[in-house]
Design a protein around this nucleic acid. Structure first.
Lengths: 193, 193
DNA sequence: ACCTGAACACCGTTCAAGT
DNA sequence: ACCTGAACACCGTTCAAGT
């Protein structure tokens, strides 16, 4: 099955992005890697920004599939742990895609917002499941989902930019911080109100 | 008191950055705003990246001064709340500086790392104070400081890139999420072990 | 020591033209 | 419908020269 030019262009852009960030993604090199001329991309994307947006959109799609495909774990809390691990893994292996996914989108495409939103719906469901089993405190599940996501995202972003490398015993990597928050949440869940 | 050229260049770069991100910061325009030629910046900075790095360095310096200048509040917990509010305010009013501060620094200057580290020392001290008054759970103060910083940072980053705008009752802004975490921490502090 | 003006290589984008 | 090659404007960077 041959890939169409559009897909080849996105593949090439993703590769270059991984290699050296958005600056490394030149339309000339993208075209070369895809085997077309340096401005063939304009027949598929209105601008370089739209091409990069397509790369990010595909990332969100993959992520939302990964979440949906999560096997039922021993407990909802365990599933949440797996989920955060996946997010951290993604940020570590594809830092440029991670950074770009949360960059400022001047022409914020509606399509991009939708694929991102889709990826988060399953996440909120997991939280609600954990609440039903009293493994997380009561309250709006979206709010708790945001709390978890914000922490994991922030820890990844700080780690990637080298702002989290504590020395010695204070060492805190994203995995540890995520576990810390989940622990705090389960403590609050067990507290009699 | 006349500002020297170097300061004028940093001022101009910061202004352009606020206006439209790093792409808007062209050395030609920086020079024009500073009243010098388009390549005079090269007599003060080795590259555009170093100029931007200087802008970020100044931001961290200002932040560390702001933390040090925090008046003693009614409680350490209240001081932490004020601190997070300041961070969020900074991210909201200068989103481009915020994003740039945590971008990938290819030539990660040692100077930049130091000014960032300096800004965090006072933060850890605040956490330790709160622990001494039993307002935060025991444990490594750095670890708890990272937890707070990661959450607030992540919430700001998600909010800026439009990934946090929940609809209706699930609405979560950085301030709410920060309060949620501080609440969770104080619950854990009060729990008998 | 600091600055200027010309020049170079590179890149995003446009356009007229080809199949 | 999709692609090509030339061309344009812009930008980071370098260099020889000025005070």
């Amino acid at each position: 099955m041959k890939k169409d030019t559009r897909t080849l262009l996105i593949d090439a852009a993703a590769d270059l992005l991984d290699k050296g960030g958005p600056a490394e993604v030149t339309l000339r090199e993208v075209g070369r890697l895809a085997g077309v001329s340096h401005n063939a991309p304009y027949k598929h994307f209105a601008s370089k920004e739209e091409l990069l947006s397509a790369v990010v959109g595909r990332e969100f799609e993959l992520q939302s599939q990964a979440i949906s495909g999560l096997n039922v774990q021993r407990s909802p809390l365990e599933a949440l742990r797996t989920l955060t691990r996946g997010y951290i893994e993604w940020a570590r292996t594809h830092p440029a895609r991670f950074k770009l996914a949360f960059a400022d989108w001047k022409h914020e495409s509606n399509e991009l917002a939708q694929s991102a939103a889709k990826a988060r719906v399953s996440f909120v469901t997991l939280v609600a499941n954990a609440q039903a089993k009293k493994e997380l405190p009561a309250g709006n599940p979206e709010r708790i989902a945001w709390l978890l996501l914000a922490l994991v995202h922030g820890a990844c972003d700080l780690a990637l930019s080298g702002h989290l490398s504590a020395t010695g015993k204070g060492a805190a990597d994203p995995e540890h911080l995520a576990d810390d928050l989940i622990k705090l949440l389960s403590i609050a869940a067990k507290k009699r109100s």
